[in-house]
Design a protein around this nucleic acid. Sequence first.
DNA 1: GTAAGCCATGACAGCACTGTCAAAGCGAGC
DNA 2: GCTCGCTTTGACAGTGCTGTCATGGCTTAC
Lengths: 337, 337
Amino acid sequence: MSRKITIHDVADHAGVSIKTVSRVMNREPNVKSDTRDRVQAVVAALNYRPNISARSLAGSRAYLIGVFFDNPSPAYVTDVQLGAIARCREEGFHLIVEPIDSAAEIEGQLAPMLTTLRMDGVILTPPVCDHPDVLALLEREDVPYVRISPDRDLGRSAYVGMDDRRAAYEMTAHLIGLGHRDIGFILGHPDHGATHLRHEGYAAAMADHGCAPRADRVEQGYFSFRSGFEAAERLLTRDDRPTAVFASNDDMALGVMAVANRLRLNVPEQLSVAGFDDTPGAKVVWPQLTTVRQPIAAMAAAAADLLLRGEARWEGETPPSRLLDFELIVRESTGSA
Amino acid sequence: MSRKITIHDVADHAGVSIKTVSRVMNREPNVKSDTRDRVQAVVAALNYRPNISARSLAGSRAYLIGVFFDNPSPAYVTDVQLGAIARCREEGFHLIVEPIDSAAEIEGQLAPMLTTLRMDGVILTPPVCDHPDVLALLEREDVPYVRISPDRDLGRSAYVGMDDRRAAYEMTAHLIGLGHRDIGFILGHPDHGATHLRHEGYAAAMADHGCAPRADRVEQGYFSFRSGFEAAERLLTRDDRPTAVFASNDDMALGVMAVANRLRLNVPEQLSVAGFDDTPGAKVVWPQLTTVRQPIAAMAAAAADLLLRGEARWEGETPPSRLLDFELIVRESTGSA
DNA sequence: GTAAGCCATGACAGCACTGTCAAAGCGAGC
DNA sequence: GCTCGCTTTGACAGTGCTGTCATGGCTTAC
């Protein structure tokens, strides 16, 4: 294998100094355009790539963005990675993924990698995005970060999210539009911010459309299949069962479908079921699940964008934020009442 | 924020040269034990972390392991990452994740990051692990790599895998042990190595137990829910349907379950269903799926281990390999005939 | 024609480590 | 007491790049 080619090789071939090559590589101004062209030609011919270690040692950037997560949903995690990487690649950055055990001590997990790697920024996903120790450490180490979270108003950090409340509102409205007036709702884990927002959306839509709120139509779940299954059993094994159930995530909605199957309730003829998240599981049932798609990859890309543009180190009153649009995915599990 | 502390700070405080600190940090021999202790005490007191960029610039290692994937299954991808990271952390290495579009041109995707980052090794998962251009490029750039793949005998690279054939054999034997003699089988995508191995295992078990092979019991699928659904329709909507169906992955098995539900066939009383992979979906149906668990995280950890120990650059005839054990997960979807 | 100012370029000193090699220290053997 | 050979330590030169500052050429304004 040929010896690694360096900035000196390019400089020699182009008949300029290494500093000029450096300028061209970094798109700095004040290089005559024919010099620039000549250097670029040599770069292409030699297939030169700047060494990232040397770059980050000499400069202030590491060309590395971190993603911290402790998310039980693999689909979520990979979507975030894909979205973030797509944006990072455009800028020649790379992604370091770091799973965090948010139940364990944070300092010991994060401090070594933060001081060792000197990443240029970090993307935080739920539930790590709400972990006070993580945020405190990042701030102490002066590493810019962006939170992807349903809870927007932490007010101290850049933020990317989606309007969970409105999404739940619209899903409920969709059900009501189908003629349902008696709609069960399954809550998520009480510790998640999204849980409350989604419930609020449901409750608001019911109220706005004149559907009587009934406490016995709202069951506690914990975002898991089993909890959805059990909540659905409580909701559906009674004489006056609702005509539709809106579970606040897909796993729980799948639990509802399983109970419906057991009870020989045809979906959607006898029961409409709606979920939230559009996980892979939503398409792996029959009938396929009506749900809400979060633009996860796009949110991650937006987070990376904030970091790459340096906006995560904002000046002024309010940190930058981006709210992306959700999408109502209407499939076969919902039908007219 | 305090100025970054460097090797010089440690050297000064400990009253030694930076080289000695370097020796201690790298666990090199020939350091007197009380010198070592003194340095380590200062390192701890100052909370010193060597700068990874400087290290990799000066030395030959980058402290970076890459994971290349183009895998449609998020659960698989995250399991690989988790397993690899666990092993990497022990050694102070980090993971760079790089999604590859294996349908697109490889050189342009990989060459930049390979020459830029100079990773110490790369872990390849299916289907990238079988992509000739990827392997050729890695070899040209002299980057050690380990393949995680069902196809072991490529003979030119380090390899970690699982015995798919035997796993399928045992699952089939499990069904036979339950009293089934007429077992349907759904093939996976013909381009995947695992497809053939799993089918071989099924066929061998049937033969070994004296169950007559019937061509009309083997249906083509493509590893997707829909293909499993359609194959199951062909298998089950006939008078002499099999008493059990073994789908060669979980997504297809879920398709079988959906068809069974539609046909009002009780699982497992009237039909046993088995899958393969133990994806999250396997627990998100009722009844839960009997399946085969691949030790994905463990395989990734083994792959990282081979890389970290330098065994992926082997000398001699046969490349190193590790075959890990699968696990038969018997849940409720299989029962006696 | 000359001073002022900008643009384009280069020399050089880091950046924080590791590799190499030389030197110092130390014990054993004679 | 001296040499030999090993262990322990340090000086110093890279490693490939960026930041800073100096320099020279060229344009503009008077």
